[in-house]
Design a protein around this nucleic acid. Structure first.
Lengths: 105, 105
DNA sequence: TTTATAATTCGATATATGTCGAATTGTAAT
DNA sequence: ATTACAATTCGACATATATCGAATTATAAA
């Protein structure tokens, strides 16, 4: 269960680049967190959010949030689906496990 | 032992930025890995390396390695000390634990 | 003291990024 | 069909970054 360097560094560098911007990191944390009031499970669907919500919470305009979401999605950190007028965003539990493993040398 | 968002996002964004470059990520992995032949412990001092070694292994000129090392050091991912003509570089075990915790939501 | 080796700093350049506002597209409600 | 709301795309700008080679500095050996 340890990394031991059998890892695609290019791919992980891309992932870390996605987490290297404070706003994107906040978005990711916001979507992954288990501490939001009203949530019980780690990856409770309740922790999902849409572009507008995220923009309001972080005080960024929608176009910028959209851009960040695209980037997080590109590297596989989050998933999205349209739900009516909104785009629902959530974190893929698998990637969090992978990242924890990355740091198990 | 879980992150739960009580975290300085600015600080971690800086750390991830340092890991966002393939060459820096390789340097970090190289220094942190437990799989190098001849090493037994996770953070065995044998896994340390100097600028020249790292440059040879990754085929980058010394000035670039030096620059990357400076950056990794700045954000606390590695430590260094001068040993004669060489600069010895190694990974601080604590930061690896911190990073694993970061992904324990 | 001179020479050799390792690392750092400096200057230059090309490339990428974050952010915004305006215009556009997609979806639902009236 | 019109209106309203949400998200995306586009264009622009300013800022940051990765990399190299040349020049410099630090340390050790002859």
């Amino acid at each position: 269960m340890s990394n031991c360097n059998n890892v695609n560094h290019e791919e992980y560098a891309e992932i870390f680049k996605a987490l290297a911007n404070p706003n994107r990191l906040k978005i990711f944390s916001r979507l992954a967190t288990c501490c939001k009031p009203g949530t019980v499970d780690v990856f409770n669907p309740q922790t999902s959010a849409c572009i507008g919500e995220l923009g309001d919470e972080l005080d960024i305009v929608a176009s910028t949030v959209s851009h960040h979401i695209k980037e997080l999605r590109r590297v596989g950190l989050i998933r999205t689906r349209r739900q009516g007028k909104n785009i629902e965003c959530w974190v893929d539990p698998q990637i969090v496990d992978d990242l924890r493993d990355f740091f198990s040398f």
